[in-house]
C-alpha cells in the first residue's frame, strides 16, 4: 500500500519547512549580525546586514589590545582548564563509588548527594559561610571548588558506568588488582564518550560563568572574561543611558567585536561538540 498524503498534509509540510527555515534564521542570524557589525568600518546597527559594511579588522585589534580583555582571557582559560580537571576527577570518583555494590556506605553517599539536588543553602547563606567561615573571598578557589560535583552530571556518569559488564572488573580483581585499578584500567578507558560529554558540560559552564566571580572576587585582579564583558557592555551601557552618553564612548562595532571575541571559542567548538551534548542529556533524561 502506498501512502498518499492529502492536500492538507502537503500544505502543512510546506508550512513546516518554511517555519523551520525561519527558526534557523532566528537562532543563527543574531550571531551572524554581531560578526558583520564587528567587521564593519562603520556599523549601521539599524539595518539587516548580511555582509559587513566596509571590511576592517581594526576593531579586533582594538579589542585584543585592551588589557582588561587579555587578563580576562587568561583568568577564564585557567579556570576552564583547572576547574574542568577538578570537576572530572571529583565527578568520576563520586560516580564510581556509587557503582560499588559491596561498599558499606554506598547508600549513605547516594543520599548525601541526592539530597543536595533539592535542598541547598541558597545564595546569601552560602555567601556568608564562604566568606566568614571558609575565607574564600578574593581567592580563585571560589571559581574552582564550589560546584565541582554536579549531582546531575554525576548521575549521568554513574548510569554509564553501570552499563559496563562486571565480568571485566572481575578479571582485574582475579589478577590481584584493587578498585583503583578497576577504575583506571577498565571503567575510564570504556567511558571515553561520557567523559568527553562531561568535559564539554563543565568546560562551557566555566567559560560562561560570571556570577560567583562578581560576588567573591569584587575589586580583585581575578576577573574572568565574562565579568570584563559585563563591565564594558552592560554596566557601561546603562550608565550611558542615564547620563546622556558621556561614559560609554566605545564605538558600536568595537562592542560587537568584544562580543565575538568572548564567544568565538564556543562558536568554533560548538558544531563539533553539540552531538555529544545531546547524547549526555539523553542519558540523563532516560534515567530521570
Amino acid at each position: 500500500m502506498v501512502y498518499k498524503p492529502s492536500i492538507g498534509e502537503k500544505v502543512f509540510n510546506l508550512f513546516n519547512i518554511l517555519f523551520m527555515a525561519l527558526m534557523i534564521f532566528i537562532c543563527f542570524y543574531p550571531f551572524w549580525y554581531c560578526v558583520t557589525c564587528s567587521l564593519s568600518k562603520q556599523a549601521d546597527t539599524a539595518s539587516l546586514m548580511l555582509l559587513p559594511n566596509g571590511f576592517t579588522l581594526a576593531t579586533y585589534k582594538d579589542v585584543l589590545a585592551r588589557e582588561a580583555i587579555q587578563k580576562g582571557y587568561l583568568v577564564t582559560i585557567f579556570v576552564v582548564v583547572v576547574g574542568t580537571i577538578i570537576n572530572l576527577i571529583m565527578t568520576t570518583i563520586a560516580a564510581f563509588l556509587l557503582t560499588r555494590k559491596n561498599f558499606a556506605i554506598r547508600g549513605f553517599l547516594t543520599w548525601m548527594m541526592l539530597f543536595t539536588m533539592y535542598f541547598g543553602g541558597g545564595m546569601i547563606p552560602t555567601y556568608i559561610v564562604y566568606t566568614q567561615i571558609l575565607g574564600l573571598e578574593g581567592s580563585i578557589l571560589v571559581l574552582l571548588i564550589p560546584g565541582c560535583i554536579s549531582v546531575y552530571n554525576m548521575i549521568v556518569m554513574r548510569t554509564n558506568f553501570n552499563g559496563i559488564p562486571t565480568s571485566l572488573e572481575e578479571s582485574v580483581k582475579v589478577d590481584g588488582g584493587n578498585d583503583m585499578h578497576v577504575l583506571w584500567h577498565i571503567i575510564i578507558p570504556l567511558s571515553k564518550a561520557v567523559i568527553s560529554v562531561m568535559v564539554l558540560f563543565y568546560g562551557v559552564g566555566h567559560w560562561n560563568s560570571w556570577f560567583n566571580a562578581s560576588l567573591y572576587l569584587q575589586g580583585t585582579e581575578i576577573q574572568p572574561l565574562q565579568l570584563r564583558l559585563r563591565e564594558i557592555l552592560i554596566l557601561g551601557q546603562t550608565a550611558a543611558e542615564g547620563d546622556a552618553g558621556d561614559v560609554s564612548t566605545m564605538a558600536e562595532n568595537i562592542k560587537y567585536a568584544t562580543i565575538i571575541v568572548a564567544t568565538l571559542p564556543i562558536l568554533l567548538v560548538y558544531p563539533v561538540i553539540q552531538k555529544y551534548f545531546v547524547k549526555g542529556v539523553m542519558i540523563g533524561a532516560v534515567k530521570g
Binding site: P30, F31, C34, V204, W207, N208, S209, W210, Q226, L227, L229, R230, L233, I234, Q237, K255, I259, A262, T263, I266, Y270, F277
Partner: peptide, 10 residues
C-alpha cells in the same frame, strides 16, 4: 550555550 552576559548584552 552562549553565556548569559553575551545574550543580555546582545
Amino acid at each position: 550555550f552562549i553565556s548569559m552576559v553575551v545574550i543580555c548584552s546582545m
